[in-house]
Amino acid sequence: MNTEPREATPLLQVDDLVVDYRRGRTTFRALKGVSMTIAPGECVGLVGESGSGKSTLGKAILGLAEVASGRITFDGADITHAKGAARRRLAADLQVVFQDPYGSLDPTLTVGQILAEPLTASGTSKADARKAVAEMLEQVKLPADTVTRYPSEFSGGQRQRIAIARALVRRPRLIVCDEPVSALDLTTQSTVIDLFIDIQRETGVSYLFVSHDLGVVRRICHRVSVMYQGECVETGPNETITRNPEHSYTRRLLLASPVADPARQAERRRSWLGLRATAGSPVP
């Protein structure tokens, strides 16, 4: 599990956020008054099954989903409805790593061009951009000759490292990680998660780590928020959520996440199912 963050003052604060989507003539409420905070240097996990609202929250923070009501504050400034130049200025501090690394990388550009593009677009000289790109590739543990190659020449795990390098190249303060390891095999997942942890320790960057897998979140996050049907049903420290979950939906997610020791898995199942029966609260 990741170490504790360095500061407690929120870098990001979300208050009573509501997001609606139109489906034909009807309106679907994707987020129902969600609140959360992320401190500098903190990794907050956002977990839930497909349709729970976790990716919608990430999109709202990035300005990719329209907010119906509520407020998003970044470093003390209201960014709820930031558009145009204001949103572009945020790009230096607020970045994203998507689930599909290949889909987020332009296949017609070399890796060096992909990484240099956000720097030169913001006024960095070509020489300084080349230096920054070389440093980024070293940080994500890719060889120097990566700059001359194309995304199609790399494995899925390597492409995700390239995507991480692109998100980091402008030294952001917060990265929204939207299911960044779910498309990778288990071994590659582990190495990429270790990379995320190492980078956070080295740079102090904050993460919103979106995932459907509590087992993944357990390895990297300081705190965890559990999403269910557009609401945050449980929030707490990693250790508390993964060892002593209070909400029946959280227990269901944990039961679906296997552990290495079959005896521990069986004991956990007996304990939590017994707790559910005693409490009389059915798992949703």
Score class of each variant (00 low, 15 high):
residue 36 M to V: 13
residue 72 I to L: 12
residue 20 D to P: 00
residue 204 G to Y: 12
residue 113 Q to N: 08
residue 39 A to N: 03
residue 135 E to K: 05
residue 16 D to G: 09
residue 21 Y to D: 05
residue 138 E to Y: 07
residue 223 R to G: 01
residue 191 T to R: 05
residue 239 E to L: 13
residue 226 V to Q: 08
residue 239 E to Q: 15
residue 211 S to I: 10
residue 240 T to G: 13
residue 25 R to C: 06
residue 58 G to R: 02
residue 81 H to Q: 12
residue 231 E to P: 08
residue 192 V to F: 06
residue 84 G to Y: 11
residue 43 C to A: 15
residue 51 G to D: 03
residue 138 E to V: 05
residue 111 V to T: 10
residue 33 G to V: 02
residue 134 A to F: 04
residue 225 S to C: 13
residue 72 I to N: 06
residue 252 R to H: 13
residue 23 R to I: 11
residue 262 P to R: 09
residue 228 Y to W: 14
residue 62 L to E: 04
residue 196 F to K: 06
residue 101 P to M: 05
residue 58 G to V: 07
residue 248 S to V: 14
residue 3 T to S: 12
residue 248 S to Y: 07
residue 276 R to S: 13
residue 70 G to M: 03
residue 77 A to E: 14
residue 256 A to Y: 07
residue 261 D to W: 10
residue 111 V to L: 05
residue 127 A to N: 13
residue 177 C to D: 05
residue 170 R to I: 07
residue 65 A to G: 00
residue 106 D to K: 01
residue 76 G to N: 04
residue 240 T to H: 14
residue 181 V to P: 00
residue 53 G to Q: 05
residue 272 W to S: 04
residue 77 A to Y: 05
residue 206 S to K: 06
residue 232 C to P: 02
residue 78 D to P: 00
residue 145 D to L: 07
residue 51 G to C: 03
residue 191 T to E: 08
residue 139 Q to W: 11
residue 193 I to P: 00
residue 209 F to A: 08
residue 5 P to N: 07
residue 72 I to K: 04
residue 22 R to W: 08
residue 247 H to E: 09
residue 98 F to M: 13
residue 266 A to V: 07
residue 199 I to A: 09
residue 259 V to S: 12
residue 187 T to Y: 08
residue 93 D to Q: 11
residue 49 E to Y: 07
residue 138 E to P: 03
residue 4 E to Y: 11
residue 267 E to I: 10
residue 197 I to P: 03
residue 150 Y to C: 06
residue 176 V to A: 08
residue 118 P to S: 14
residue 25 R to A: 02
residue 94 L to D: 03
residue 219 R to K: 15
residue 158 Q to P: 10
residue 160 Q to S: 09
residue 92 A to C: 12
residue 232 C to E: 02
residue 150 Y to N: 08
residue 271 S to Q: 14
residue 63 G to L: 09
residue 274 G to R: 02
residue 227 M to W: 03
residue 190 S to T: 11
residue 35 S to Q: 09
residue 271 S to L: 14
residue 161 R to M: 08
residue 157 G to V: 11
residue 46 L to E: 03
residue 131 K to I: 11
residue 107 P to V: 07
residue 13 Q to E: 15
residue 247 H to N: 14
residue 172 P to H: 12
residue 106 D to T: 05
residue 87 R to I: 01
residue 211 S to Q: 09
residue 246 E to A: 12
residue 275 L to R: 10
residue 44 V to Q: 00
residue 114 I to G: 02
residue 186 L to N: 11
residue 138 E to T: 14
residue 272 W to V: 02
residue 43 C to M: 14
residue 254 L to A: 10
residue 36 M to C: 13
residue 191 T to G: 00
residue 104 S to P: 07
residue 5 P to F: 11
residue 211 S to E: 04
residue 241 I to C: 09
residue 238 N to I: 04
residue 248 S to Q: 14
residue 252 R to I: 11
residue 91 A to T: 11
residue 227 M to D: 03
residue 13 Q to C: 05
residue 44 V to T: 00
residue 224 V to R: 02
residue 183 A to H: 03
residue 280 G to L: 12
residue 262 P to V: 01
residue 163 A to S: 12
residue 77 A to L: 13
residue 169 V to I: 15
residue 55 S to V: 08
residue 173 R to T: 08
residue 11 L to F: 07
residue 189 Q to R: 15
residue 272 W to A: 08
residue 254 L to K: 05
residue 156 G to D: 13
residue 101 P to L: 00
residue 190 S to V: 10
residue 6 R to Q: 13
residue 217 V to H: 01
residue 194 D to H: 10
residue 182 S to M: 11
residue 246 E to L: 11
residue 5 P to W: 02
